[in-house]
Design a protein around this nucleic acid. Structure first.
Lengths: 314, 314
DNA sequence: TTGTACGCGTTATCAG
DNA sequence: CTGATAACGCGTACAA
């Protein structure tokens, strides 16, 4: 029967018929656990997402990355299984899950430094790839974007429109994306960089933008440009400016980052940086599948191109 | 060793020490597939999401439901695994996955009629619960909200503010949520219901709202109230009204549905219906876990309470 | 083309 | 308290 189901050998047509009849009668289904046990593979790939509290709700990129990864994994006839980490307890359980042979590889999204999961994956030698680039795990490849140069580009664009006092609401400085965006902002400003015109909040969120912009206006009411570390943050900035009676882009130019669903729905529509999120998901999946099929792990990263999208907010 | 790891029996302390040393040395990890094979349980629960194209990106409810379910499942020390359906091909593979013993139960989100997954689950007798209420699967319990009476309430509220010509942009009429919201709208209007003042689009999306409101204005420029089938739709409606030069809530009152992240960020902020999404996720998980632990399946549904949230758009 | 052992890593049972 | 051993359901290699 194994031979019939897997097409691994020739089977006579009356034997086939008999088997198929029996299957239909009993409602037989293959037991995958048993199969995995003997084949030592699961034909599944994990997609591990950290800290969804705000992330899942606010960050549309993660959905697009997920969809991209799912496409590729699905085309290879593997099953993508998403694992969400919402507590320290989850961490341990997910690590066990990954180690237990449920998956042949994993895509790790928004991991942080000193990561339980990344550590376990590395120790086990499980095929894996990061989205983004948490430090401290040199053996695991990653796919991401060049946050620093993208941030620099969009800030330069803002300066080019004639803004003189440009500030930034930074976020998530404990992640590479956050600190790189700040670095790019600094690059663009060069000598004109003024640390007093930077505030930072831990989360890429609307609330961060709202608070951040208020604080910036308090520090320097003459600000005429703001770079927000993400579109969600930028949306908060816009609201703070509106409440403060500043017009956008008249009084203040605002740029965001991500080109998320928000960007076009803000009033005015946001100038921002487009991330190829879906493509990142695809690429990450390809890398993991490659490793599973025995390809050499090329350490280091694949950096995808971004694009500045200029709309009405600056 | 099994006894040590699972604490199933007493083990002498020197035996324990020897084992622990060996484990550390070899880097031993339990193989879950083998364990599942003999115990016939996986300590995992599936969370199946259909049609994420727009849904995952636009609908924040699904994220909140997911988080709620994850909390409960995690507290029971089970692993929640999310499976995304993006194509017909995915359907078959996910059905196989569910049948293959990878999970002990499943939460089915936004399933539709004649559903491959629901059919497979039902045939297999796998513990399961729907979020929402797709017709045709009487044996599977569900948790949801009373879309019809909630839609009625919010429409009535709109009428109470003095609106005379009230229209609706309906969505997803092939799902119970969509058709029930339309029914509730109709209930509220009673004799005044005019089918010409209803347009429908397949997806709960911004674009649906944009197109829908334009069409409505074409049909009757004197419209002074619009009920949008979701907040995303309402956001599109708002934009269409802005482009048409109508003020909100001055010329037209607008109400949405979901109380999603959008609602407070629209200008003006949206009056809408609050769904207890996180609680729905929790309740669904509780029901599935109950079944897994041998509780009787109570067919039928658990309907959670909604609340009309009145803001600035009407 | 088909039948038949064997082994995958674990748990559970039963004597010691 | 401990050691041995039979399943669990499947793929596979080898013999018929």
């Amino acid at each position: 029967m194994s031979r019939l189901l897997n097409g691994t050998s020739y089977v006579s047509s009356d034997a086939r018929e008999a088997i198929e009849k029996a299957i239909a009668k009993v409602g037989y289904v293959q037991n995958t656990a048993a199969r995995n046990l003997v084949t030592r593979r699961s034909r599944a790939v994990g997609f591990v997402v950290h800290e969804p509290h705000e992330l899942f709700l606010d960050d549309p990129n993660i959905g697009a990355i997920l969809l991209g990864a799912n496409e590729v994994v699905s085309e290879a006839d593997f099953q993508l299984v998403v694992l969400v980490l919402d507590s320290e307890r989850d961490s341990q359980r997910v690590a066990d899950y990954l180690q237990g042979g449920f998956v042949d590889g994993a895509v790790l999204v928004s991991a942080r430094q000193h990561d339980t999961i990344a550590g376990a994956v590395e120790r086990l030698g499980l095929p894996a790839v990061f989205i983004g680039h948490p430090p401290g795990h040199p053996t695991i490849p990653y796919v991401g974007i060049d946050n620093r140069s993208a941030a620099r580009s969009v800030t330069e664009e803002l300066l080019r429109t004639g803004r003189r006092r440009v500030a930034m609401v930074a976020s998530a400085l404990d992640r590479d994306s956050g600190s790189d965006r700040l670095a790019g902002f600094r690059d663009a400003l060069g000598d004109r960089f003024d640390p007093r015109l930077v505030v930072d909040h831990p989360l890429y969120s609307y609330a961060s933008g709202l608070d951040g912009a208020r604080e910036l206006l308090r520090r320097d009411p003459a600000i005429d440009g703001i770079f927000a570390a993400s579109d969600a943050v930028a949306a908060g900035v816009l609201e703070a400016l509106r409440q403060a009676g500043r017009s956008v882009p008249g009084d203040v130019g605002v740029v965001g980052f991500d080109d998320s669903a928000w960007a076009v729905r803000c009033v005015p529509a946001l100038s921002t940086v487009r991330q190829p999120a879906r493509l990142m998901g695809r690429r990450a999946a390809e890398i993991v599948l490659g490793q599973i099929q025995g390809a050499e792990v090329e350490p280091g990263g694949a950096l995808l191109d971004t694009e500045v999208v200029w709309r009405a907010s600056a």
